[in-house]
């Protein structure tokens, strides 16, 4: 490029003063920012739009399958799993039958950091393999780091079926 041409151009533009240049540079940067925002808003909106899964009652078995005083693992599926979720659409819960009609369902996630707690039937305790959190059969903390009792899921009896209400992962805050 010929530097003379630029110089000439500069000289000619000079009478128009700096305001035109100020306007043009602001226009350029402003349009860039607006274009960026036009693209960013839907992208960020998509990322922040967390998937809300509707709650639904899931049958986990017939009443008579559960022994009174017993705690067993039950599995159920997300109410609306994504088609590619595979096994991750499954959820587990610990279901305890207290009496003829009373059931309690506990989340398997330890309230300390979310590791899956195990039920020790002979010891009548839940134990977490990560940091040794222990819960009694009613979900209250028996020992170790958990700050709260095991979260419960709503349970109901429909006819002769036991049903659990699916819930979001109960993150301790």
């Amino acid at each position: 490029m010929n530097p003379d041409l630029i110089e000439t151009g500069t000289a000619e533009a000079a009478p128009c003063d700096g305001s035109r240049r100020r306007f043009l540079s602001r226009l350029t940067m402003g349009l860039g920012a607006i274009a960026g925002a036009l693209v960013a808003v839907p992208c960020v909106g998509f990322l922040l739009g967390l998937r809300k899964v509707p709650s639904a009652w899931r049958t986990v078995g017939k009443i008579e399958e559960f022994q009174i005083g017993g705690t067993v693992k039950v599995s159920f599926r997300d109410p609306s799993p994504l088609p590619w979720a595979g096994v991750t659409a499954r959820t587990a819960a610990w279901l305890r039958r207290n009496s003829q009609t009373e059931f309690v369902a506990f989340a398997v996630d330890c309230t300390h950091l979310g590791c899956p707690v195990r039920w020790l039937a002979a010891a009548n305790l839940f134990m977490c393999p990560c940091h040794g959190g222990v819960y009694y059969a009613n979900g209250t903390v028996a020992a170790g780091p958990p700050p709260r009792p095991l979260p419960r899921y709503p349970v109901r009896i429909q006819g002769d079926q036991v049903q659990i209400l699916t819930s979001p992962v109960p993150i301790t805050t």
């Binding site: 997300d78 979001p168 805050t173």
Partner: peptide, 18 residues
């Protein structure tokens, strides 16, 4: 905290979106 935790899971549960 709760929002951030679920943001990491990309939703209510750890599943297809995560």
């Amino acid at each position: 905290g709760s929002w951030l935790g679920h943001f990491i899971l990309a939703g209510d549960t750890a599943g297809g979106a995560t």
